[in-house]
Design a protein around this nucleic acid. Structure first.
Length: 344
DNA sequence: AGATGCTGTATAGCATCGGA
DNA sequence: TCCGATGCTATACAGCATCT
């Protein structure tokens, strides 16, 4: 870490060289408050940085310290928070993070009474608009509160970098649902076709196994994906992987039905998995009744239905006597059963 | 490289129980 | 009746080994 960055990290006063002061002075004055003014300002700052880079390139043996200073000036540009007009903000599809209605309300009340602690992150678009990189929900709540400006920092990045940075920034939020993580990782794969799961695991801090689980959402039926678009928190990666596996083995209809019940709140995730994996019920077997005679009268009526055998005698005493005898028979059967289980 | 199975750990929510 | 301890269950996740 450079000395300057180190001091920045420690929150100490930053002493700049004369050159730095001159460059920083041109950036430091507060950003213009009008849209066109901000656009001009950002463009001008970028030009200065580009010029500086050009100068560096011309110099033979430009030293590392100068380059580091340039980098820090760029960071300064990036961290210069300013108020921007909300009407200029543009949302890129797929970048929004799900937030529950309760959380939204909490955020709105927080923002109603307190200053925005973390400015949103934006990129300057060619047409002068501002693309939201991070902070969609904060913008929403500012709109709800009837405000027309919000504090923002400008990010200098390519489309790919902005997408990656928006995704990984969102991923740091622990309340991101597994389905949203899935969507994010899918976008990363589409944008960077050669990226491996191991690489995504490294970048996101999530284990490789979990990346594999999350990406298993791919095998869920389209009907389930539609439901997840509405309720992203409905299915976690574990249940998602199991249900996806069931769908792959042809139990698509069962998976869709189970998820429908889950979405209605009738069952929980584990019950949905059980429901989707349950074998079709066998046709009920009819009960069998056998009568054991003693002479002309019935000695015992034996009835079996499913896994229940019922014996009915004429007297309690006879039932008690047979029960003791049956116990010995069943204990012997149990030994046979155990041996058979062991051999199979 | 990626998928899968298994084990172990952590955490949250909930129900139950017993003592104050 | 209240409150803390305890146990159970569901869920999430990591790590490891093994298979495709």
């Amino acid at each position: 870490m450079s000395a300057l960055k180190d001091r920045m990290a420690k929150g100490l006063a930053i002493m700049l060289t004369e050159e730095d002061e001159a460059a920083a002075a041109s950036m430091k004055p507060s950003m213009p408050t009008t849209g066109p003014g901000q656009t001009m300002q950002i463009t001008a700052l970028r030009k200065q940085i580009e010029d500086l880079k050009g100068e560096l390139a011309k110099r033979d043996g430009a030293n590392g310290a100068t380059e580091a200073r340039l980098k820090e000036l760029e960071q300064q540009l990036a961290s210069a928070a300013t108020d921007v007009e909300i009407s200029r903000l543009v949302e890129v599809p797929g970048r929004r993070r799900y937030m529950s209605p309760e959380k939204k309300l909490e955020l709105r009340e927080n923002l109603r009474h307190n200053k925005l602690v973390h400015p949103i992150v934006v990129r300057l678009m060619a047409n002068g608009g501002l693309e939201i990189v991070s902070g969609h929900n904060r913008v929403d709540q500012y709109k709800e509160l009837g405000r027309d400006k919000i504090r923002a920092v400008f990010e200098e990045s390519t489309d790919d970098e902005a997408a990656a940075s928006a995704f990984y920034a969102n991923l740091l939020q622990s309340d991101l649902t597994d389905y949203e993580k899935y969507r994010g990782f899918k976008q990363m794969q589409e944008r960077f076709p050669s990226i491996t799961q191991a690489k995504m695991a490294e970048q996101s801090g999530i284990s490789e196994a979990m990346i594999s689980y999350i990406l298993a959402f791919d095998d869920l039926p389209p009907e389930v994906i539609t439901t997840l678009e509405q309720q992203p928190a409905l299915i976690g990666s574990m249940a998602g992987k199991t249900l996806a596996g069931l769908a792959k083995t042809g139990r698509t209809a069962e998976v869709i039905a189970a998820v429908a019940q889950l979405a209605e709140g009738k069952i929980d995730q584990s019950q949905a998995v059980k429901l989707a994996s349950a074998k079709p019920a066998k046709a009920a077997t009819s009960a069998e009744t056998v009568k054991i005679k003693a002479g002309k009268a019935d000695y015992c009526v034996m009835r079996r239905a499913s896994n229940v055998v019922r014996l009915q005698f004429k007297s309690d005493d006879e039932a008690r006597r047979v029960q003791a005898a049956l116990q010995k028979v069943l204990e012997a059967e149990s030994a046979v059963f155990t041996a058979a289980q062991r051999d199979s």
